[in-house]
Design a protein around this nucleic acid. Structure first.
Lengths: 330, 330
DNA sequence: CTGAAAGCGCTAACAT
DNA sequence: ATGTTAGCGCTTTCAG
């Protein structure tokens, strides 16, 4: 099953076999045929490991994501895998589960596996020095961050302009006459902070009041949404619109509202974020912000590919999100 | 950055360095310290590729799934990755997109990459000879099928008993007095067929009428559900319960029902399948069948691991699903 | 306890 | 056009 046996069966040297396999050098048609016959007969498969060792490249990209089960990441990974495949790369997947510790370990493992490059999907949290390992890894291979950002020679980022995303929602709501707008979010990630920033900035420039009690941080998930709504009631809120940083949060809010018998969108308008499948499953259907994961992932693969090809590539790349209106805000 | 440089810096041979790295053989404490110092200083990382070449194993498992974006697959992949990681394996992910053609190619690629084993996630469709490549691949490495089945020496399967899953729903519905029960499904996959079988079998043994017009095949997705409902109306159906083969289908059905002003569950009962996040987002919330992806994936990784360890393992393993009652069927 | 050397399967000069 | 050969970085006998 090695190249030697093929060579022997074809009555040529291993170099010749290598040549026909890789279409390199030139070989006489008759010789080629002999070799190809042997290849078929032995059902030969080249050993990519051995090849990698000599050519010093694995055609493999490492992908780190905190959790594939999140549909946002799932989408990103799906596209990344597809795109890299088209470009001739394999993909090794690692679920890091968020924390920097596991991420550090996986980065190391991927480095040992000699991946040609990596893409880190999703927000990096702001730990003190928590990102040193990324910087370190980047000395060995190029790294692209999808929806996160970090400064470095060999680090590239592709982000969705989430600040603008939320801003657009605020503006849109203001135009519809809403003055009391609440913002509900979960995590303090890179994009989480950008969204929050977008909210406050836009509220200010629209001249709308920003009340502390209207900005609510809650747990992730549908129950997080429910709970946030409850807290909003506690403070006797008089807002007429709620923006959630995630669709799933908005789904919880919608549930809570319905339960209280409040009409959406008549008595309260709700906006989600991600334009995930969830936004189509709720009743009423959820208006949301399409943060373009597909475009982001495509861009990320393109960037990494170009870097790998030795091209000069911009270190910062941004994609602009779009509002999608459904029943919860018409 | 190779083992040679470490050896040189430590003033020992590469064999010794190898020994301390792998904790193999025995080395004098002082020597070990010298080596470890050099290791640190050079920030050395072993080259897994080179190692794989000699030990003839990569500690990598290939995973083929048709589409990670499907939450069912996403869950499976997440758990698989976690479990294998715990066992010391990496995971290469391939999205095959369903068809056998791409799957054949990916199988080959994974073989070249010398994965130690593979798990194929999801249903294999019934093509004529469409599965020969799986059989072929299994001569090189063990393969476990998650929720699919194929006979072979080196092939193992872990399936959810979906036939029983749907049967349970039927029985449960019959107990509640429903006699007219409709079944809506999308694809003819391995598990798709099992579910359908479960429906007809259970209907028969419950002595309930099986009408052709009540068994509806439709497209996948939320619109598939909507459309199926429409067809059900077309035939002036008088059924009082609908079972869908997927939550997302049920979501579409629910939407359609609400639109028509029909009360769920009072006028019509609906049951989904998968117990996905979707079932909690709909209004009313969807009763569903928990098909235990988590358990399935855990079992799959265990099976493959044991095979890799040279243990004797059962070729057929089944996990039993459970009903989860929510508002759409109380 | 440590080192020398063979070899894993392949590619890429360098010869011929 | 084809063959010979030297590694790629590592593990693993086999000597010492």
């Amino acid at each position: 099953m090695s190249i030697y046996e093929v060579a022997q069966k074809a009555g040529v040297s291993i170099a010749t076999v290598s040549r026909v396999i890789n279409n390199s050098g030139s070989v006489r048609p008759e010789t080629r045929e002999k070799v190809e016959a042997a290849l078929k007969e032995l059902n030969y498969r080249p050993n990519a490991i051995a090849r990698s060792l000599v050519v010093n490249t694995t055609n493999t990209i490492g992908i780190l994501a905190s959790d594939v089960r999140d549909s946002y990441y799932a989408n990103a990974i799906y596209i990344l895998e597809q795109e890299f495949r088209k470009l001739g790369y394999h993909v090794i997947l690692c679920n890091t589960g968020g924390g920097p510790e596991k991420r550090r370990r996986y980065l190391g493992l991927l480095l040992e596996k000699k991946v040609d490059g990596m893409v880190l999907v999703g927000s990096i949290f702001k730990e003190k020095n928590g990102n040193q390992h990324i910087l370190d890894a980047s000395t060995s291979v190029p790294i692209v961050l999808l929806n996160s950002s970090l400064e470095g020679d060999n680090i590239y980022s592709v982000v969705c302009d989430d600040k603008t995303g939320v801003s657009k929602v605020v503006v849109s709501l203001a135009l519809r006459g809403h003055r009391g707008i609440s913002y509900v979010y979960d995590v303090d990630s890179f994009s989480g902070l950008a969204k929050l920033d977008g909210f406050t900035t836009a509220m200010k420039s629209a001249g709308l009041p920003i009340k502390k009690e209207w900005i609510i941080q809650t747990e992730s998930g549908i129950d997080g949404g429910r709970r946030a709504l409850k807290r909003l009631e506690d403070v006797k809120s008089t807002c007429t619109a709620i923006i959630a940083s995630e669709d799933i949060l908005a789904a919880g809010i919608l549930k809570g509202l319905t339960q209280k018998g409040m009409k959406v969108p008549d008595e309260m308008v709700v906006f989600g974020y991600n334009d995930s499948i969830i936004s189509q499953c709720t009743t009423p259907e959820l208006s949301s912000v399409d943060n373009k994961v597909g475009a982001l992932a495509k861009e990320a693969s393109k960037v990494l590919y170009q870097v790998l090809q030795g091209m000069e590539v911009s270190h910062h790349n941004v994609v602009v999100p779009e509002l999608v209106f459904r029943e919860s805000c018409d």
